[in-house]
Design a protein around this nucleic acid. Structure first.
Length: 263
DNA sequence: ATGGTTGTTCCACAA
């Protein structure tokens, strides 16, 4: 049963010891990383090779950076999101691993929304929707995981009113996200954890500022989107909160996805 | 209204 995980590590160099320890503990078959904050040549591939993982890395100095790590061969790599050849930001890597087509994505934050950063975010989401539609025709189960920088619904944020104007929670952002779901993609965590009043919130990110982690005031912005064929394999999706409490933690914590077969 | 945190890089910017 393949186990996948996604984690925005906020600098792989600052987080290497934590990530390696977590990988040894959880043993994912496929690991999606975001915010490497290094160029591909600087990615510590040898440390993951020692644990049995191949790597596909799309890097950039200081900002962004995404990777796919897998125990099985990583084939037919796509190293940027189609739709804008001038976009040099390292936010997307996709490949075939076993029977799955898998992408690790780092969707633009978009703040402040009155700047060009927000139109860039919306344009990136439109490109993602178009490409996701293409992926549905390729015959394999598709898994699109990563840091979406989208709070899907009010229950996914500790203070919905306070976040109403934020680029992660604006109505246009959530509408653009839903257009991807409407193609037929299933968001794994939400599918398995229908929210009822009184349920404990399930966040994947807590800001470093303002004591958000100790108060459990977070956001759920790291997601796995599954094509219909992949959703048919869905067994479990969990948020591992433990690494957020570690010393020198990333502000995000990993999401783990279990599929019934495939790799 | 302010200050609050982390990482990378350069004397800010992005999150």
């Amino acid at each position: 049963m393949p186990r996948l995980a996604t984690w925005n590590v906020n600098s792989i160099k600052a987080r290497l010891a934590s990530v390696l320890a977590w990988v040894e503990d959880v043993q994912p078959d496929i690991l999606l990383l975001q915010e490497l904050k290094c160029e591909a040549a600087g990615f510590p591939a040898d440390r993951f090779e020692a644990l049995g993982y191949q790597a596909a890395v799309v890097g950039q100095k200081s900002y962004n950076g995404v990777a796919l790590l897998a125990r099985a061969p990583i084939e037919d790599r796509l190293e940027q999101l189609p739709g804008d050849a001038d976009d040099r930001q390292a936010r997307y890597v996709e490949a075939t691993i076993g029977d799955l087509r898998v992408a690790s994505l780092y969707l633009p934050n978009g703040n402040p929304p009155e700047t060009s950063k927000y139109p860039y975010k919306l344009a990136w989401m439109a490109r993602l929707r178009r490409h996701a539609a293409d992926l549905l025709t390729n015959g394999r189960p598709v898994v699109l995981g990563g840091d979406y920088n989208v709070i899907p619904e009010p229950i996914d944020v500790y203070d919905p009113d306070g976040w109403r104007g934020d680029a992660l929670f604006r109505l246009e952002t959530r509408a653009a996200y839903r257009t991807v779901l409407h193609l037929g993609f299933t968001e794994a965590y939400r599918a398995l954890h229908a929210h009822r009043p009184g349920d404990v919130p399930a966040y994947t990110f807590w800001d470093y500022q303002g004591g958000r982690w100790p108060r459990d005031e977070g956001l759920r912005i790291d997601h796995f989107l599954l094509s219909p064929q992949a959703a048919d394999l869905l067994q479990a999706c969990t948020i591992d909160r433990r690494p957020r409490a570690w010393d020198k933690a990333s502000d995000h914590t990993p999401v783990v996805l279990e599929l019934a077969s495939g790799v």
